[in-house]
């Protein structure tokens, strides 16, 4: 049961990691990275690390995503196609 859950969770995490790297809209890719952090915090909870899960959910998925969004707002949202 737990193995199946971990396999599904891991596949979803890898899909979101690849999405975060290859989406052209930077806001969408930052949100994908945030979702990756949130799933990682679920994984920490399964592995009996509630302290780390809490930190990852509050800091990695919440604050870091917001810092990225503030940086994108000050620069440019769409990636140049000729890059």
């Amino acid at each position: 049961m737990t193995d199946v859950f971990i396999i599904v969770l891991g596949l979803v995490m890898i899909v979101f990691a690849i999405l975060a790297l290859y989406l052209k809209d930077l806001v969408a890719s930052v949100i994908a990275a945030g979702v990756l952090s949130l799933f990682a915090s679920i994984l920490y909870l399964i592995m009996q690390a509630p302290d780390v899960a809490m930190t990852e959910a509050a800091i990695g998925a919440g604050l870091l995503t917001m810092i990225f969004l503030l940086a994108i707002k000050k620069t440019k949202q769409i990636e140049d196609p000729n890059d």
Binding site: A20, L26, V30, L36, A40, G60, A71, E79, D80
Partner: peptide, 17 residues
């Protein structure tokens, strides 16, 4: 893209953790 490079760094961080 430099922001994409930083996103790559955060993904690698999650892997190490």
């Amino acid at each position: 893209n430099m922001i994409k490079i930083v996103i790559g760094l955060t993904i690698a961080e999650v892997g190490v953790q």
